[in-house]
């Protein structure tokens, strides 16, 4: 195998690796957004959605469309984290609300 062939094979390998890793990141972003969306819907159904969640999901979708997968994942994860907090709040307030009655 001469040097030229070796370089070509190496280049081809790098290109394939880059494509695989990019598609993996893209699919990760899609999964993260789907999960964020589901959790957001759950917080709406619980009547405790925060108004910061929807913009995060929208921004994550925009980042995915712009092929900025890392940003998309970060935003979607933030949206999921906030939705989880909203769901904890909803669960807690099922019993805690009586503590706010006038005393």
């Amino acid at each position: 195998m001469n040097t030229k062939t070796l370089l070509f094979v190496l280049l081809l390998s790098f290109a394939s690796f880059a494509t695989i890793s990019q598609s993996a990141t893209q699919s990760h972003a899609k999964i993260a957004i789907q999960q964020a969306n589901e959790l957001w819907q759950q917080s709406i159904a619980a009547g405790h959605a925060w108004n910061t969640i929807q913009p995060l999901v929208a921004q994550a979708k925009q980042a995915l469309a712009n092929k900025d997968f890392e940003t998309a994942i970060a935003l979607a994860n933030e949206a999921s984290a906030q939705s989880k907090q909203a769901l904890i709040q909803a669960e807690f307030e099922k019993n805690n609300w009586i503590n706010n009655l006038p005393k």
């Binding site: 910061t52 307030e93 609300w97």
Partner: peptide, 8 residues
Amino acid sequence: YYYSKRGQ
């Protein structure tokens, strides 16, 4: 609803 905490 009135007495429940909500939002960030």
